[in-house]
Design a binder for these strands. Structure first.
Lengths: 191, 191
DNA sequence: GCCCAACGACTGCTTGAGCAACTATAACTG
DNA sequence: CAGTTATAGTTGCTCAAGCAGTCGTTGGGC
């Protein structure tokens, strides 16, 4: 690993310099760097494509999760649990998307505290316009970069890491969604 | 391209529901989901640990990149190029960190437009306090989850994806930093 | 049935980040 | 050397997101 000559830099120069400097060659750092950069790179590509369709990453994730749910709807809280957002975050995204005609709120008949966010026809249409290109992007920049075994190995490793590290309580609704699609930039839910 | 059954999809249940629903089983979606969730999970873990030492992910990335650079310093622009931040973003982080005593600005002797951000003694100390735990977190939640070959395979795959997708122009200073450490949540620089 | 704790959604406030505009220097061009 | 253009950094403005607090609703204990 490690063509890490990014810092062929270690030098001697300053007080603590040496002390800390060499640590950066640690393969663990390299590993994290790779993962994070791959993520950043893909995010950037995806965002660009989504933006062409007038969606932010968060909005895309929201509409995706709603669309894949029965009735194209989800209670606000459940939506929050499935996304990288807090409940107040969800309130606001849904506000914006409702304003833009992609979503509507619908009262929950059983529980008057709850309300559903529902994808509108316009919203579904937007999603259908967006998805093909999105899948193409994934293929182009991610899955298509590797032959099948390599991809399988990669996914296998990722799955293990994900299972270990994923903030299992993606806030509330536990692990209701293993393997779920995450289109955001993955900001850690709450600081 | 195309096992794109994204649209051959029709089914019947709900208006559009079916139509879109099955698309979400697409392995490409799954793949992205894994990568993004692994990233989100690790970010969350790391953030928690960094916070114990009073650093945000961005601050940690900044101080790390400075510390690994010759003289523990970098020009503002170069720092921006190496991080997930815009130049104005850098101005502000450095403001905060300077206020907190972790960094100082120093005028550049050659070019009076430029200035360096330099890590202070306090800053180095803070970093030294933080790093061991950070490495431990990486091991605990990431590298330690896999046996050596699996890890190698994972990293290999990530490297290929990274090389393909990474916004090569990490803004300005091109690809000055392959394999660099990225501790942020990897928000796409400028969408 | 009444009370109180828990829950769901929303709102005020604060923070962090980007873009665009601006200032100051530096580098070209003739 | 004067004038133009490019670069480095900062600042004003906007916007998205989280936290904490609020209000209405629900459900459990008694």
């Amino acid at each position: 690993m490690s063509n890490y000559n990014c810092n062929n830099i270690p030098r001697v120069k300053h007080w603590y310099a040496e002390r800390v400097t060499n640590v950066f060659d640690d393969p663990r750092i390299t590993a994290v760097g790779l993962l994070f950069e791959a993520h950043a790179g893909l995010s950037a590509r995806f965002n660009a494509q989504l933006e062409e369709h007038g969606l932010s990453a968060v909005e895309f994730e929201v509409i995706t999760r709603l669309a894949r749910s029965p009735g194209n709807q989800l209670r606000m809280t459940d939506l929050a649990a499935q996304t990288s957002l807090s409940t107040s975050g969800v309130t606001r995204v849904v506000d914006r998307m409702e304003r833009d005609g992609l979503l509507t709120r619908r009262a929950c008949p059983n529980d008057r505290r709850s309300s559903y966010a529902v994808v509108t026809g316009t919203g579904m249409q937007r999603l259908n316009e967006t998805l093909p290109g999105h899948l193409q992007m994934i293929e182009q920049w991610f899955t298509g970069q590797l032959d099948p075994e390599a991809l399988a190995a990669l996914l296998d490793g990722l799955r293990r890491v994900r299972d270990a590290a994923h903030p299992c309580a993606t806030a509330g609704s536990d692990d209701a969604s293993p393997e779920q699609f995450a289109a955001t930039d993955g900001a850690p839910r709450r600081h």
